[in-house]
Computed example of a mutant assay.
Amino acid sequence: MDSVLCSQDEITEFFDSFGEDARGCNAVLLLPLDKTLTLLGVQFREVWSASREIRRGLPTFKTAQKMLSEDPASLSLSSVKKRLHMTPLPRGALQFAKYQLGNGYSVSTVVHWLGFLEHAAFSTPVVLEYWQEKLYQISDLSGVGIRSVSRHHDRYLMYTSAEVVEHLGCPASRHLMADLLSEFKNDDEIDRDKRVGQLMAADAFSVLLRLAAWLIAEAQIANWDWEVSENSHNSVHAAWAIPKWCGSAQSWSNPMEHALEKLAKASGWSGKKQKPVTYLGKVWAEAEDMPESSKIRLLRNWVQLKPSRPSFKSMQNLVRVCFDLAVKARHELPADVVVAYWQGACWFRFAETMAILVRDFQKDGWSTDLIASMMSVYESEYRTARALMGKPIND
């Protein structure tokens, strides 16, 4: 028996023990996994196809897409049974689903997240325990708490004052939401007000930033000896990828500029004569035997976030060129260098995603203070993660 994933017999036996009285509910605080992948520029089709190569029994991409994208509140329990029966389910997620159904509701988005964190993301027990507790709290708030009151106004009050929302959401959203709710006279006004949606979105993106902080902190600790040897063990990794507001310039920093500058320095850029984009464009063009002008223009477009997002493969190719130059200058390429290429490209994508978010938030009319508050959670959560994993940052 697989020690991590449940067998189909186990899943069938579990669901057959329940009736049809559980109701499907939408999750608060959490974006669905497929939307999170889209946010990161990852094609769900590619991820699912790769997974099917490993586990031949998975349903088709079309079926999986419907499973994740359909409104959970519109699903019957029989539909949930059918779809989960077709999907490999970690035992922790199965117990989570059992907990939900035993309490008369189903919040599939939260189950998906627990399954992902348990099976594909975190490996440290203290991290899994920390996030499992938070997901159970989100589950109860979504399926029981806010549904125990009928007025939208009261639901929002319950939501914004919930312990898990205060802990994981955007700090600025708490007092802003309370002030907003005091202005409304009826539920229709709340539903029409764009600011409420912005505050809810700020909470959801704050949760993703906190998850990213834990993932990156865990990866840093996993390479602890190397981090100590490089004297980087007391740094907040990827802090450069978080946009920062400059009051004097009245503008946000661009993480893509920082990403390219870091790659340029790693590959030998001295910081003189040429800008990082020009230097990297020439290095990349030489490695791939292409005209310099095309690569320089491509990198300028990346910085300006136009006309479309770079492919992960393109990012990985640039990282490979820069990493090879950096490592060869010190010693031979390590055996696991391909993993380093992939990790470097992931950091690059993270920086690009953060730059896009700030651009889009500004276009949507978000206040600078709300964006800044949301961005601030990354470093604070990173420090929390390091401390709970037994490796606090010593400033």
Results as ranks from 00 to 15, higher is better:
D2I: 10
Q8E: 00
D9K: 15
E10K: 07
E10G: 08
I11R: 11
T12L: 06
G19P: 01
T36D: 09
L37D: 05
L39V: 04
V42E: 13
F44V: 11
E46N: 12
W48I: 12
A50E: 12
E53T: 08
R56G: 06
K62H: 09
A73K: 11
H85K: 11
P90D: 04
L94E: 04
K98W: 06
L101E: 03
G104P: 13
S106M: 13
H112Y: 10
V127D: 03
E129N: 15
Y130H: 15
K134G: 02
L135V: 01
L135P: 00
Q137H: 12
G143Q: 09
G145H: 05
I146S: 01
V149H: 05
H152A: 02
D154Y: 03
Y156M: 06
M158R: 12
E163N: 08
V164Y: 08
P171E: 05
L176H: 09
M177C: 09
A178N: 05
E183G: 05
I190Q: 03
D203K: 03
R210C: 01
W224Q: 12
N231P: 00
N231H: 14
N231M: 12
S232N: 14
S235M: 07
A239W: 09
I242V: 15
C246N: 15
S253N: 07
P255D: 12
A259W: 12
K265C: 05
A266C: 05
Q274Y: 11
V277M: 06
L280R: 00
G281L: 02
V283A: 07
V283C: 07
W284R: 02
E286W: 01
D289T: 14
E292H: 14
S293E: 14
P310R: 02
R330Y: 08
V337K: 07
A340E: 12
A345V: 13
W347V: 14
W347M: 11
A351T: 06
E352H: 14
A355Q: 04
L357S: 10
V358Q: 03
D369M: 07
I371G: 08
S373Y: 10
V377L: 04
E381R: 11
K391W: 09
P392V: 02
N394Q: 13
